[in-house]
Design a binder for these strands. Structure first.
Lengths: 335, 335
DNA sequence: ATGACAAGTGGAAACGTTTCCACTCACAGA
DNA sequence: TCTGTGAGTGGAAACGTTTCCACTTGTCAT
């Protein structure tokens, strides 16, 4: 591989000049510049990224950690971040967790990995992170934002939807449609955002005099398959409800399959409601009513904040983008 | 940030000794080793990845390019690669394309990006790549494997399923179930693997005396939404077929929705068949009959080959893992 | 005693950049 | 003619590792 010295020699200039041509910094005569550019082309010279990072201590790269690769939830967010980053000429390196159970350790490892790679800033997703974990991340790389997790200590760096309000909105929509008997499929206990939306949902029911303890619930792990089995388990106990609220869309999609396997039809026999608003919900059979969380926007604003932090930019940063209920066919209007 | 020199000073040894302790190479007395380890812990020393790569010319990292992030197809493959890599203590850096149309340029850019980052080897997915593109990649980084694309020049580095055989298997299954009138939803023209499976599919029909030209077909872009509109377009021309074959599962999922919107029921009125065997097909309504392509295994074997290339390992490498038809409920047996 | 050899060690050189400083011109103003 | 200025330039130093070579010790066989 050709180095900057080879280029300098071939162009008959010093290394400083070559560097200036490449970076576009400092003054270079037009004649020298063109000789350098030719030499670069002839030698197929590509600057060594490692040497650059070592020297400059900057890599123009943002590191992103997401708890899972597979599944339909995280990748659109990744895509939004990636697209934005490209428009600013920056790069992205991603690290993934393995399972939801190992999320905490994975996130810590991921933060180490990404920091070691010279990332100028970090975006960390995950709701199972304890405050101590976040302190640890902050120590590794103070320039970071948290997605879907909020801790007081780093409030300014936290970007998360109001899950409790969104859960409440779901309950209100169902109630207004005439539903009075409910069941829920929860996400994993470790997921703080799951707890929040369930609190919001059950809180509204309580306002209407329904004891949260009396609401049948099953637990899944956010995967479609877990939604299917949870729905079947719920139905096996007897059909004591008209509306089934799921903690995320993927489980709701599984629930749709589970309900069908139980010989029931959605929404004639049972209504199903999801949460998140992933694209696929528009194309299920029947199309899924869900709560649209503006994940892409939230991620973009989190990224903007991080870019401001890392590169002294002044991109607009908005918080509190509201969720909204997406009415489709999987919920019957009983009234 | 503490450097190796700081550690050496604090431990009262030379930098060489510290390096040997960290790498576990060369002889070090137990006493010196423990002093070094303590100094490392006290100073919270983390070796600079950039300096290492610069010095060693190796990064223990494999770069992966996939044409798209979002969508359900690529991420399980990514997950499989990632998991395998971790078991060998290696890392992964991913780069993504933006759209299917820009795949060629994206792949080239991706290969540059990943090579610059010091990746020891590359896995490149994408079926739109021309031989010249691949030459270009080979020049950048000779240690690479191609996933889902085959060119004679680099035969040993190519890992792809036999799409033609798999397409033929789909047609045979449909024929044996008694179907005689067909329609297809194709993928984009630029996708070579789409062409292959269609050739396989239509070839079998031709063997049974059906003129491929007479088979109604619509075109999608592999996305669910495009499958929905394609199905509707096909149906709008009149229901002249009993079985609809889709070039991938995501379009098939969309087709399911499209058929429903047209007021028809799957499989009573119309059978739908997918291709790929993504996990979600087990949970659609109705569950989707599809051709299971062993993507995870293919990816793993491609990775094994690459690891052998990069790190002188001797992992087993298998090719020609057969596809198989996954019978579910979306296809009616007419006979 | 002497030589051979291995274990253990320190530090210089090298990896390929960027940055900074010192230097040379050419030219304008006095 | 001299002086100041700024454009243009070359090259040394620095970034933080690994590797290699040279050196000191200690042990063992002769």
């Amino acid at each position: 591989m050709a180095t900057i010295k080879d280029v300098a020699k071939r162009a008959g200039v010093g290394v400083g000049t070559v560097s200036r041509v490449i970076a576009g910094s400092g003054p270079v005569s037009a004649e020298a510049a063109s000789r350098v550019r030719r030499a670069i082309a002839e030698l197929r010279f590509r600057p060594s990224h490692a040497a650059r990072v070592l020297q400059k201590g900057q890599s123009q790269t943002i590191g992103v950690f997401v708890p899972l690769v597979h599944g339909a939830f995280y990748t659109p967010i990744l895509h939004a971040i990636y697209t934005t980053l490209r428009t600013y000429g920056r790069h992205m390196v991603v690290d993934f967790g393995q399972t939801l159970e190992s999320e905490r350790q994975d996130a810590l490892d991921g933060a180490e990995f990404l920091t070691d790679r010279g990332c100028d800033g970090l975006i960390v997703m995950g709701t199972a992170l304890k405050p101590a974990d976040i302190e640890h991340i902050a120590e590794l790389q103070p320039k970071f934002v948290l997605l879907n997790r909020c801790v007081p200590r780093f409030r300014a760096q936290c970007f998360a939807p109001d899950h409790q309000a969104a859960g409440a909105a779901a309950a209100r929509a169902l109630w207004e449609a005439g539903h009075r008997r409910f069941a829920v499929i929860e996400g994993p206990k470790s997921s703080l955002d799951n707890q929040q939306r369930m609190r919001g949902f059950l809180g509204i029911l309580a306002e209407h005099g329904i004891d949260p303890e009396g609401v049948p619930h099953a637990q899944g792990d956010f995967s479609p398959e877990s939604g299917r089995t949870a729905a079947q388990a719920l139905l096996a106990r007897g059909r004591m409800f008209t509306a089934l609220f799921c903690a995320n869309d993927e489980m709701a999609i599984g629930a749709l399959a589970g309900v069908r396997q139980a010989g029931l039809t959605v929404p004639a026999d049972l209504s199903v409601m999801g949460y998140d608003g992933i694209d696929l919900t528009a194309l299920t059979v029947p199309p899924l009513t869900t709560v649209l969380i503006p994940w892409r926007q939230i991620a973009t604003h989190a990224l903007n904040h991080l870019l401001n932090l890392c590169y002294d930019m002044s991109l607009p940063v908005e918080r509190d983008i509201p969720a909204q209920v997406l009415w489709r066919e999987s919920v019957a209007r009983l009234s």
